[in-house]
Computed example of a mutant assay.
Amino acid sequence: MKRFPCVPLLLASLGLLSVSSGVALAAELPAAIQAVEARGAKIVGRFDAPNGLQGFAARYNGQGMALYLTADGQHVLLGTLLDAKGEDLSREPLERLVYAPMGEEMLTRMQDSTWIADGSDSAPRVVYVFSDPNCPYCNLFWKQARPWVDAGKVQLRHIMVGMLRADSAAKAAALLTAKQPAAALNEHERAGKASTLKPMKTIAAEVQQQLDDNLALMGELGAAATPAIFYQDADGRLQQQQGAPNADNLTKIMGPK
């Protein structure tokens, strides 16, 4: 299981964060910090740092990066700052200024994508899963999730993609356009290898666009295979599970039974 900010390729092309403090941050940046921005970093905020240093939080290639400007304003240190006890002084500001807003934005992106709800709309926990109709591990996760879904504790939101086989997109389209998508999905997953789901002969342009958008979003989140599972941990941080989880990780994703 991966902590969301550690996913490779995470949001590198999204340009998600903006500085909304009312201060034109870019216009006030010292020249040394501007030089780092010129190399591709995006400065998203400032934070307090010890001993005359000025702290800046940045995004670079989708990752958080801490910058420390020296007191003379002429030099920049990049990386993790530790105190005498070995405590990481960079973690909290990067979490607050980079990763927390990034996770919130990604939750919104997934919420606004095209998905099939599996479970009660009043379930206290929502889990997003990028799912391919031909994926055996998606089927395994569907089975693993039944106790929580059936108890009304979790709603799975299946963000359908078509990537594994030639007919995956057509099968995903058939599910999305079914009269009752949730029932169609559950029938397909319940049957497993015996599923009789028929691929759609002609995918409407609108539906194809939904599938393309879902697959693009999956890539932007750093996921390369299905099922790609995204959920919030006990602290509200976005986490990713790649593949069907083991028993311990399943409880982290779904919560207590």
Rank of each mutant, 00 (worst) to 15 (best):
Q180N: 14
V129R: 05
M218C: 08
A145W: 02
G15V: 15
F56I: 10
P181S: 15
A57G: 04
W148I: 03
V129L: 10
M1W: 11
A224I: 07
T177V: 04
L77I: 13
A247C: 06
V127E: 02
F130W: 13
Q111G: 14
A224Q: 13
A194L: 15
T226M: 10
G152V: 12
V161L: 04
G40M: 02
D235Q: 07
W148C: 06
R46Y: 10
K143C: 03
M160F: 06
A26M: 04
K85P: 07
K171Y: 07
Q241D: 07
A172S: 14
D88T: 00
T80N: 11
L29Q: 03
A38R: 15
G86N: 12
S131F: 10
V19A: 13
A58Y: 00
A204Y: 11
A71D: 12
F230E: 00
A182F: 04
A204S: 12
A194K: 15
N214W: 02
M106V: 09
S120Y: 02
I43G: 11
D212F: 06
M163P: 08
K201P: 06
W115G: 02
R39M: 12
T177W: 03
D121H: 00
A24P: 01
L175I: 15
A225P: 05
D150T: 09
Y99S: 01
L215P: 05
P50L: 08
V129G: 00
V7M: 05
L94D: 01
M200A: 11
H188P: 03
P124L: 13
Y231W: 00
K201E: 09
M160A: 07
L77A: 12
V23W: 15
I43C: 14
G73L: 14
P30C: 05
